[in-house]
Design a protein around this nucleic acid. Structure first.
Length: 491
RNA sequence: CGGGGCAUAGCACAGUCCGGUAGUGUACCUGGUUUGGGACCAGGGGGUCGUAGGUUCGAAUCCUGCUGCCCCGACCA
């Protein structure tokens, strides 16, 4: 009981915060805006990393590592880039502390001021393109396909565990290409990788699209994104892929010799997903009893709980449990046999539900008699008895079914909460009453976008890639529109 | 960074109005009985009441500064 979390209906935001803490995913740190990612939360992140890392390598990318600190002067080399990030950079000004003679403790040593201040990377384009200048000489060095797993710091005013923290973990891909078309194809390809990851592994449907100019990455020519709808009807940007054009190449003078011997600027891309995906994963599927994890990302896919009175019973149950454990592990299923005698079965049931373990197997004396086990699935909370000789196959299939089911559930939710409107009144009404994704005509101007945002808090999440070019008139200005765009209130 | 609320044991809170030396639940430790949905009984440990100062014989309580957290806005992956 002590671990019960608030319900989503009562207070969605509190539900999220409490769930993150009670499920042991993360907690606040002594430093404002930062978070401690706890072992269980990190285990989920590691599974995401492993999967994505393989997808990146399968598409020809290699990992590297660039430094945390960036000379301040680098940031200002690309005008839009500095404009976008300057407001939220942490700056290193000194390199030494000394003991405070008067008050005890330590103070910054005023004699240790850095000649050029360093910024803590908010993203690594600048430091990476500075290297690329030396790495790239000719068309033979292209394409250059690099990814790095790193932490970055953006000094946010308002933070929330996983969704927006001052320091976060992410991967950032940075590629350089000989032609515009190739760089554009790379941008698209990585967007597809993200969409595939979100849908197949996170079981989270996403809408692919292009950002409007005002939402574009600072320094990009075009920003592509995947947007997902959370259970409270708000949208969450889950990943971005940027076509950088020649902006950074020009800023850092990255040229290559073509086959014909001409000097040309290279074309760039960058793309990233962060620990924010953890927030998306939590909000996409979980319920009032706790986390619901897709089997493909669950650190523990199956938990086995013994039910017994006497030690002899435990011994007999353990024998069966261990047999299942190794049989399932042989099928690459991660299994935990929780034989702790410090907690009762009911306590363990609640605990693993809170933690979102997809499948629970309970084995008790009655099961030993009947040759069965009790199998419970986290997504629907259904329980059933299964014969022991069918258990391994049953569980293997069940994991796949759960993965499919939570995707369908999220997909129907997204579908049910995606609406199309023709007028501004209708737009405001739907936004107020239902939230969710709203398709509406927009005249394409930043002014209209801004006004709608000011008046309704809804932003253009993206111009969907698959949108039909159905002509119409802008809901706000009445001017002509070439197609509907996707609006929502967003995280 | 503006507006509001909060800060007391690991966690959730009471006590603050009206100053008198800190309490409840839960978690933790020990022993026993228990175990098919968050067990029960008995005993036990743990808090310089966010922090710095002020008022007072005496401060969790009154006053001031600071810090942090939560909610609402502006900014953002």
């Amino acid at each position: 009981m002590s671990k019960a979390i608030p319900s989503r209906n009562e207070d969605y935001s509190l539900w999220y915060n409490e769930l993150v803490k009670k499920a042991g995913l993360a907690e606040n740190s002594p430093v404002r805006g930062c978070m401690v990612i706890k072992p269980y939360g990190f285990a989920i992140w590691e599974k995401m990393q492993q999967t994505l890392d393989k997808m990146f390598k399968d598409t020809g990318h290699s990992n590297a590592y660039f430094p945390l600190f960036i000379p301040k002067s680098f940031l200002s080399k690309e005008a839009d880039h500095v404009e976008g990030f300057a407001k939220e950079c942490a700056v290193v000004t000194h390199y030494r502390l000394k003991t405070d003679e008067e008050n005890g403790g330590v103070i910054v040593d005023p004699d240790a001021k850095l000649e050029e201040e360093l910024i803590v990377r908010p993203t690594s384009e600048t430091v990476i393109w500075d290297s690329y200048k030396n790495w790239i000489q000719s068309y033979r060095d292209l394409p250059l396909l690099i990814n790095q797993w790193a932490n970055v710091v953006r000094w946010e005013m308002r933070t929330r565990l996983f969704l927006r923290t001052a320091e976060f973990l992410w991967q950032e891909g940075h590629t350089a290409h000989a032609t515009k078309a190739e760089a554009e194809a790379e941008t698209q390809q990585m967007l597809e990788v993200y969409a595939k990851f979100a849908e197949e592994f996170m079981a989270m449907p996403v809408t692919k699209g292009v950002k409007t100019a005002s939402e574009r990455f600072a320094g990009a020519v075009e920003t592509y994104c995947i947007e997902a709808l959370m259970q409270d009807g708000k949208a969450l940007q889950a990943g971005t892929s940027h076509f950088l054009g020649q902006n950074f190449a020009k800023a850092f003078d990255v040229k290559f010799a073509t086959k014909e011997g001409k000097d040309e600027f290279v074309w760039g891309t960058s793309w990233g997903v962060s620990t924010r995906l953890m927030g998306a994963l939590i909000m996409a599927h979980s319920d009032d009893d706790g986390l619901v994890l897709p089997p493909k990302l669950a650190p523990i896919q199956v938990v086995i709980v013994p039910i017994y009175r006497k030690d002899e019973e435990l011994a007999a149950i353990t024998e069966v449990a261990e047999k299942f454990k190794s049989a399932l592990q042989d099928k690459n299923i991660s299994v935990k046999f929780d034989n702790r005698d410090t907690h009762k079965p009911g306590w363990k049931f609640a605990e693993y539900e809170l933690k979102g373990v997809p499948v629970r197997i309970a084995i008790g004396p009655k099961d030993l008699e009947k040759g069965t086990v009790e199998i419970a699935r986290r997504d629907t909370k259904e329980k059933q008895f299964v014969n022991q000789d069918e258990t391994v196959d049953f569980v293997t299939n069940l994991l796949e079914e759960i993965q499919t089911n939570i995707y369908s559930k999220a997909a129907s939710f997204t579908e049910e909460n995606t609406r199309s409107v023709e007028t501004y009144d209708e737009f405001k009404q739907v936004l107020e009453k239902d939230g969710g994704f709203i398709y509406a005509h927009w005249d394409g101007t930043p002014e209209t976008e801004e006004k709608i945002k000011d008046e309704t808090k809804a932003t253009i999440r993206c111009i969907p890639l698959n949108s039909s070019s159905e002509e119409g008139v802008c809901i706000y200005s009445g001017k002509p529109s070439k197609g509907k765009v996707l609006f929502a209130k967003a995280y």
